[in-house]
Design a protein around this nucleic acid. Structure first.
Length: 207
DNA sequence: GCAAAGATTTGCT
DNA sequence: GCAAATCTTTGCC
């Protein structure tokens, strides 16, 4: 179970850590919503790799998404990490988010200033509440594609929740942003989140 | 070789 | 509530 596990980024600036509170599953070449539905390509090659590796890709030209490969080689399956609840290094996450803002706002100085101010004012819980935001907050991009997230020596890695920590109550529903997929894949309830957690992305907070 | 759309987020109408 | 920003990948000519 990935929900409740820790996502950790160690850098020269310090450590960022958070609890995973929302994921989506993309399973097999049959899944009409998965990148693997067209078979193996240059972009999705990591989905066909060994489990525990990261599959990172760029969407909409500006946001990265982090996936954890979950099945054995040649069986493409992955969990998209949609939301993380910050536990440590929130200041570093906020700074990383600010850098993304400047990239996105272009050279409109006034707009950039407003956007940066808005990021600075964000509560910690909102720093990684979305798949693109997780990668922004943890400075994840495609050079992290293929890293072994289960290697304790990796600067970007996963760790199990501490022993004794109560597992969160879970809810599930249809995946987000896959309206292009046909049934039954579009409605398959393969998005799972921690009930009532303030870091779950947007509309997903329901129930 | 070119057009179209995407596992998103933000800001304006 | 809708469109923009932006670029990689897919799909068709």
């Amino acid at each position: 179970m990935l929900i409740g596990a820790r996502l950790i980024r160690e850098g020269v600036d310090g450590v960022r850590a958070g609890k995973i509170v929302e994921v989506e599953a993309y399973i097999g070449v049959d899944d009409g919503a998965s990148h693997a539905r067209f078979g193996r390509t240059k972009r999705n090659a990591r989905m066909f790799g060994p489990p525990g590796n990261a599959y990172v890709y760029l969407v909409y030209g500006m946001y990265h998404c982090l996936n954890v490969v979950t099945d054995s080689e040649d069986r493409p399956a992955a969990l998209l990490v949609r939301s993380v609840q910050p536990l440590e290094g929130a200041d570093l996450m906020r700074r990383a988010r600010t850098e993304l803002v400047e990239l996105r706002s272009g050279r409109d100085i006034a707009r950039t200033a407003r956007a940066r101010q808005r990021v600075i004012a964000l509560p910690d819980a909102a720093l990684a509440s979305g798949p693109g935001l997780v990668c922004a907050a943890f400075s994840i991009d495609r050079h992290d594609d293929g890293v072994d997230l289960c290697d304790p020596a990796s600067p970007l890695r996963l760790e199990a929740a501490p022993r004794g920590e109560a597992p969160p109550d879970l809810a599930w529903g249809p995946r987000i942003g896959i309206g292009y997929a046909v049934e039954p894949w579009r409605s398959r309830p393969w998005r799972v989140w921690a009930v009532g957690n303030g870091s779950v992305s947007g509309k997903a907070a329901s129930r």
